[in-house]
């Protein structure tokens, strides 16, 4: 299905957030996630994805 990952339309095979993260190469990366503007904790990544979902994947960065 087609979803949007960090603003880019992306095709994924898996039907959960965990499966999509794995498929897209995040593996054990230190990231946090949101789907459709709502935070999804790491413990809830078995959440199902639907076509058109907007997924945000972020990591620690420099900040002021």
């Amino acid at each position: 299905m087609k979803i949007t990952v960090n603003g880019t339309e992306t095709e994924v095979q898996g039907d959960t957030l965990a499966a999509a993260l794995d498929e897209l190469g995040y593996g054990e990366a230190k990231v946090a996630t949101a789907v459709n503007e709502a935070f999804v904790p790491a413990t809830a990544r078995d959440r199902a994805l639907s076509p058109g979902d907007r997924v945000e994947i972020v990591a620690p960065r420099q900040g002021g």
Partner: peptide
């Protein structure tokens, strides 16, 4: 130290590197 969160691409691992530095 103030820090932020920003988008990370699959396989990028910039977050982990920055986190190690902090």
């Amino acid at each position: 130290a103030t820090v932020s969160v920003r988008r990370e691409a699959g396989g990028e691992r910039a977050g982990a590197a920055f986190w190690d530095l902090v």
